[in-house]
């Protein structure tokens, strides 16, 4: 049912431009990786704190407030570069299990970060150290899955 949509995606000019160029795919891919690095820092600085380590003199809420613009910026860069990469090989992605793992976990990871995790950083009495640690660990696990699945698209 979705296949016709993926087939249409491959005809979009942006994807065609990437396919027609020797350099475009690798360059966009490299920028995608730069975004990953910044995303990693913005995510981990908060998650490590939720796990009870890292910048302990600051509350998780303060760290989250500081890290959030970097996380949003990195996500914008990653999505903006991810779209042309996807359009250039949409049909391959359709038949690629890693792609579907990534596209399932990515919205979950984003939603989790801005809802459950954002709330877990506050100093409400409900946010016990154990609960915060669990949220931090889950956040790391989600992003690692997204990134690993993303890398694995290229192997299959």
């Amino acid at each position: 049912m979705l296949l016709p949509f993926f087939e249409w995606c491959e005809t979009v000019w942006l994807g065609r431009a990437v396919v027609g160029s020797l350099w475009l795919f690798p360059v966009i891919e490299a920028v995608h990786l730069l975004g990953l690095a910044v995303l990693g820092g913005a995510v981990l600085i908060v998650d490590l704190r939720l796990l009870g380590t890292g910048l302990k003199s600051w509350t998780p809420a303060e760290l989250w407030r500081e890290a959030r613009p970097f996380m949003i910026g990195a996500l914008v860069v990653m999505i903006a570069t991810g779209i042309p990469l996807f359009l250039s090989e949409a049909i391959k992605c359709y038949y690629n299990d890693s792609f579907w793992v990534k596209m399932t976990t990515l919205p979950i990871a984003i939603a989790f970060a801005f809802t459950v995790r954002a709330r877990a950083t506050t100093d409400s009495v409900r946010n016990t150290a154990r609960r915060q640690a669990a949220v931090g660990a889950l956040s790391i696990a989600l992003w690692v899955t997204v990134a690993a699945a993303g890398r694995w698209i290229g192997f299959s």
Binding site: L33, L36, L39, G40, A42, L44, I45, P69, F70, R151
Partner: peptide
Amino acid sequence: VLFLMLFVGLTVILDVRLLGLAFTR
């Protein structure tokens, strides 16, 4: 690639502090 998130990611945190862009308190 994955440990790039840990290594370069946290290096970026140090760098933005040095540049005064975040975590300045």
